[in-house]
């Protein structure tokens, strides 16, 4: 991997920016990579479209924005509609299974669906949706190690919710491993 570009998207309140922060911290502090995170920053607070972009590289990143995202995580319909066409053939598309209605089968992409909100609710609170999705993304993309991600959590999630966030991450991660196995068996 030389450079990898990831877009995290959804609606405000889902913890989209937090996803990019955690992944960026994991990569740059614990996986020995360089990462630059920029975010859509506007007066909109909650409920509207929200996106963060992360550039990952083995060397120092000069140009800080994504131009050819290889990975898109879309946790809302609006985010999916807006960004899926950016992905090149072979790109990774991760969508929230219950919130996103696909416009096509996307046979040119590596498509993964994760019921992140439902899993989070099973853990007691839909606030953990982002960590489920992150665990899933970690498993299917391998752009970052699960170990680094878990190390990155303290300080970026409230201490009293650290354990449950790790649990949410692992639930998503394990589901991601199953998804890869299923995809492998199917092809």
């Amino acid at each position: 991997m030389s450079t990898q570009e990831i877009r995290f998207s959804g609606f405000g309140g889902q913890g989209i920016i937090r996803c990019a922060l955690i992944t960026g911290k994991a990569l740059s502090l614990y996986d020995d990579k360089f990462a630059t995170m920029t975010q859509s920053f506007g007066p909109e607070a909650r409920g509207s479209a929200c996106a963060a972009q992360l550039v990952v590289s083995d060397s120092r990143i000069l140009y800080p924005y994504i131009t050819h995202p290889g990975i898109l995580m879309a946790l809302s319909q609006e985010a999916y509609d807006k960004y899926y066409s950016e992905l090149p053939d072979g790109g990774v598309l991760i969508v929230e299974n219950d919130l996103v209605k696909l416009q096509s089968e996307h046979t040119n992409l590596k498509l993964y669906r994760v019921p992140a909100t439902r899993f989070a609710e099973e853990l007691g609170n839909r606030l953990f949706t982002n960590l489920v999705a992150l665990g899933f993304l970690t498993a299917v993309t391998k752009v970052v190690t699960d170990d680094a991600m878990k190390k990155a959590l303290p300080g970026l999630v409230p201490d009293r919710f650290l354990k449950i966030n790790i649990k949410a991450f692992e639930k998503g991660y394990n589901h991601g491993l199953e998804a890869i196995n299923a995809a492998g068996a199917a092809s």
Binding site: G24, F34, A35, T36, M37, T38, Q39, F41, P64
Partner: peptide, 9 residues
């Protein structure tokens, strides 16, 4: 604003 809100190591 860009550098101010950009996260890096």
């Amino acid at each position: 604003e860009t550098v101010g809100h950009m996260h890096e190591k």
